[in-house]
Design a protein around this nucleic acid. Structure first.
Lengths: 151, 151
DNA sequence: CCTGTTGGACAAGATTCTTGTCTAATCTAG
DNA sequence: CTAGATTAGACAAGAATCTTGTCCAACAGG
């Protein structure tokens, strides 16, 4: 049989992610933030953490500028970010997370934290911290290339 | 700040998954299996493990029947599965993984196993096994509903 | 100033889902 | 045995989210 421990591990990671975010999407929808996809929340989080231009966001998310711009357009339409002109560079549009955006991140973060708390209660906080520490180490070297590089 | 440990954990899981599969896609492409997306490999694996009809595959992958059928169409076109008539039920088409399909799974599995081996070497086999055991437990209750259910 | 780089936008197309509708085959009561 | 419900699969249209390709305006350095 071609059962593969590696494949099982990959599926485990994917399922872990989906278990977390599936919970959150519906939770957000029930609290006045319908139509928010997981990708939106993480993109917004990246903006809040300093990716305040489309190009920078593209680099952080490892997608093309265009994809990032489209994501930003959605976030702007939903009222989560606003685009201000940059007085220092007329090409740039500085992204600013709105109050509503902070609220959404706060709710989403809380929901994710709740899942994590449930997990901590299940296997114990120490073990969960171990899992996190190991995953952090294993994915540390993931400096993903972007856009105009062509391998 | 709305930094969220839950959000960090979700990103960690996603990054772990992507770290594994990104490696594999290019590896497969260089061995005569270009155009195989990670989703294709996992879908094929599900078929090999018993999801031998479109509807059953849909249930396992937690997508609609239509999505599964489209995935199957791709797999069939790439020569990884064949659709045989089921003598016992004329509605069904039994899916069968071809030799080429087994080959692809074998290569993909090996590549995934290699990533896993590298990880085991990095943090130690015992710790990796712990991570796997914990994730298995945490995602055990994930019986994802499908298709015609409506909350 | 000229040239190369960077930030952003528009358009078109590919992928991969979805919903909606349909037919045909099977199962289950009565 | 047959009427109605369920199930398997398909086709079509559309939404979401990427991509490539092209373009222009603004900056930076000689």
């Amino acid at each position: 049989m071609e059962r593969s421990a590696g494949a099982a591990l990959a599926l485990l990671l994917l399922r872990g992610f989906r278990t977390m975010v599936d919970d959150v999407s519906s939770g957000l929808a029930h609290r006045g933030h319908a139509g928010v996809r997981p990708a939106d929340e993480f993109a917004l989080r990246a903006v809040a953490e300093g990716a305040d231009t489309a190009s920078e966001l593209a680099r952080r998310l490892s997608v093309t500028k265009q994809a990032a711009a489209q994501r930003i357009a959605v976030l702007a339409q939903l009222g989560y970010v606003e685009r201000d002109l940059d007085p220092a560079d007329a090409r740039r549009k500085r992204l600013r997370v709105t109050a509503r955006g902070h609220e959404m991140m706060s709710i989403g973060g809380t929901l994710l934290d709740e899942v994590r708390e449930r997990w901590a209660a299940d296997i114990g906080p120490t073990r969960l911290a171990d899992v996190e520490a190991h995953l952090t180490r294993l994915t540390a070297g993931t400096a993903i290339p972007v856009d105009d590089v062509d391998d």
